[in-house]
């Protein structure tokens, strides 16, 4: 899937009415650069309790088929810190973006 429409696309190549036929193509738009602080995943402390998975507004906590989370997807994480705040085990620490 790729969206080949941008601000240089001539009218004849744009979809009519602003329709988009590639549902979910927003994944091509990265929001990670909005971040000023970032969550650091400390896997040793993580108990896989699951509290952080659903609270991420940006779906930036990947969860595998085994129901276990892995490290953050920084392509999308906006650094809001909601995940760090819900973690009872201090397995997520907010640090400054380098």
């Amino acid at each position: 899937m790729s969206t080949n429409i941008d601000k240089n696309t001539p009218a004849k190549d744009m979809t009519i009415g602003g329709n988009i036929y590639e549902a979910g193509n927003a994944v091509e738009f990265k929001t990670g650069d909005w971040r000023s602080i970032k969550p650091k995943y400390i896997s040793e402390k993580c108990t896989q309790c699951g509290l952080c998975f659903p609270v991420c507004p940006d779906d930036a906590i990947p969860v595998g088929k085994d129901g276990k989370r892995t490290d953050f997807n920084y392509d999308y994480c906006k650094g809001c810190g909601v995940c760090a705040k819900v973690c009872p085990f201090k397995a997520i620490e907010m640090v400054n973006e380098e």
Binding site: G18, Y21, A23
Partner: peptide, 10 residues
């Protein structure tokens, strides 16, 4: 078979 989106912020 082809979910689509109509009516964007343009």
């Amino acid at each position: 078979k082809e979910p689509m989106a109509i009516g964007p912020l343009d």
